[in-house]
Design a protein around this nucleic acid. Structure first.
Ligand SMILES: [Mn+2]
Ligand SMILES: [Mn+2]
Ligand SMILES: [Zn+2]
Ligand SMILES: [Zn+2]
Lengths: 136, 136
DNA sequence: TTCTTGACTTGGATCCTGTCCATCGTAGGA
DNA sequence: TCCTACGATGGACAGGATCCAAGTCAAGAA
């Protein structure tokens, strides 16, 4: 995470206490928090932080490629700091638990040329659905 | 589509002008409309139809398995009448165009046992991203 | 160290998507 | 034709996200 802060500073990011706290909340792997969850955790350290700032900061981290946006349900988007290690997600239909998974092969390669309709492919998102051991 | 109406009647669906119009709007392939888009088109034929009825009807068609719910962005869910032919989606990051695509192989098989964490898998959704010829 | 300024933050308004509910209307069987 | 249970209505409500004008402050300049 200090890595992240250093990288951001290098990119000319103006460092504020709000941005620092948001970045700290997003530390670690297997983190898939909604904006409101990020806000709640950030507010424990910095009670005055506003939801607007959390949304702004998350949006910037996403466009910088430091955080991935994940929408596994039709509900709130989730923010995933594990953006430098490509992966997909396995979601429990019962409790909503999300796990990072790594399918074999390149999912992109599964789309034959005649099914690409002239598109320039840039990525692919795979969401596996199922029941976790606790919910099954 | 007359197929769909016949199938629904067979299942004991009470036929109303509202339900008929919604079903007609969802006719065809490569249809991926939001609830509000369905409502707008339905209202051209039946101006008094309410949003609540459109949502109710779409929800029923989904639970009957006649329509697929698709959420390719974190925004509005889309409703896809092509529910009897399993497929995935290719989305243009520029204009939002959605195409049905058919990857080779079974996407489920790409998740090795040691990456399943004891889950009972029930399905998988794949969204390919890229730029369509017009946007590239 | 102090000054300056443009970038950042804030809270509240606003929008969009979707759900809920009490009431009214009607499809379709008796 | 009549009944009534099921469906439709519209307006309230809630959650997620964006927008905005006004206030604040990080960090480079002097
Ligand atoms: Mn992840
Ligand atoms: Mn489709
Ligand atoms: Zn579970
Ligand atoms: Zn396009």
């Amino acid at each position: 995470m200090s890595d992240l802060l250093a990288r951001l500073r290098e990119r000319g990011w103006r460092m504020t206490s709000q941005r620092r706290v948001v970045a700290e909340v997003l530390d670690g792997d297997h983190v898939h928090l909604t904006a409101d969850e990020v806000h709640a955790r950030a507010a424990q350290r910095l009670p005055e932080i506003s939801r607007a700032t959390v949304y702004n900061t998350l949006g910037e981290l996403v466009s910088l490629g430091e955080v991935m946006e994940v929408s596994t349900d039709g509900r709130a988007r989730r923010y995933d700091p594990n953006a430098h290690h490509p992966h997909q997600h396995l979601v429990c239909s019962g409790c909503g638990t999300i796990r990072d998974v790594h399918p074999t092969g390149s999912p992109l390669a599964d789309l034959p040329a005649e099914e690409r309709f002239g598109f320039t492919l840039s990525g692919v998102e795979v969401t596996y659905r199922g029941l976790c051991p606790a919910c099954a």
